[in-house]
């Protein structure tokens, strides 16, 4: 289990998360929802070690890893695909995959990446920044397949992509889940995320407002959080 417990975190003098606890069991899919600015990205940054929490703990399979650097967590099976495009734009596609493989055999890693997203096979020599947005995101996501992590944290991976590409990406996420990867989804396509999710957490202004299963969350409640219709 990847477990955030009583996390308070922020940047400088601004506190973004207050007492947030987020358990992610192995092999589960967790949807982390909330309006913009609710603290979803910050939660993922804490979970992958990019941001050290002010207080609270981070445990990975029973080991306390609070305050450890991201590469330590990555080596232990946490794969965070950050918001934006998680690629090195000035490196070739092949070099991107080589960096993802982190020392493992590059050839094998390239084969796995291409088997996940065949379109990457035709682009190996190209500069990653010159790919289309969808291809860039596929390249970023291929890391979750190449390195065989136990936990994959996905931050708005469908943002700004055409619907066809979004479908392909969700198909890939479904396959990852089937293979036993635990997923944490921060996703604006709420309906798609809920289809996959075993658990739902709802953040509002840095606090956990709801934790439960998708069935327990009704659409009205969700709209209220997103659209402020409670007036």
């Amino acid at each position: 289990m990847l477990r955030l417990h009583d996390i308070t975190a922020g940047y400088g003098d601004t506190t973004v998360l207050r007492d947030v606890s987020l358990p992610v069991p192995r092999r589960s899919v967790v949807a982390l929802l909330g309006a913009n600015g609710a603290g979803k990205t910050t939660t993922l940054r804490v979970a992958s070690g990019l941001l050290a929490p002010g207080s609270g703990t981070l445990h990975l399979d029973g080991t306390d890893l609070t305050g450890r650097r991201p590469h330590v967590l990555a080596r232990r099976g946490v794969c965070h695909v950050p918001e934006g495009r998680g690629i090195f734009p000035n490196l070739s596609v092949r070099d991107n995959i080589a960096v993802h493989a982190a020392g493992a055999d590059t050839g094998e890693a390239v084969d796995r990446a291409v088997s996940a997203f065949p379109v990457l096979g035709e682009k190996l020599g190209q500069q990653a920044g010159a790919l289309s947005g969808g291809q860039q995101q596929m390249l970023a996501l291929s890391r979750a397949y190449v390195t065989e992590p136990s936990y994959v944290l996905l931050d708005e991976v469908s943002m700004g992509l055409a619907p066809v590409v979004v479908d392909e990406i969700f198909e890939f996420l479904g396959r990852l889940a089937e293979q036993g990867c635990a997923l944490v989804l921060v996703e604006q396509y709420v309906a798609k995320a809920l289809e996959l999710a075993d658990y739902v957490f709802l953040l509002a202004r840095g606090r956990l407002e709801f934790a439960g299963e998708p069935g327990e969350l009704d659409a009205a409640q969700l709209m209220e959080k997103y659209m402020g219709t409670h007036t």
Binding site: P163, Y189, A219
Partner: peptide, 10 residues
């Protein structure tokens, strides 16, 4: 607007 915010299926 609802679709744009929550995804088309919603």
């Amino acid at each position: 607007v609802r679709a744009a915010y929550l995804g088309s299926e919603a």
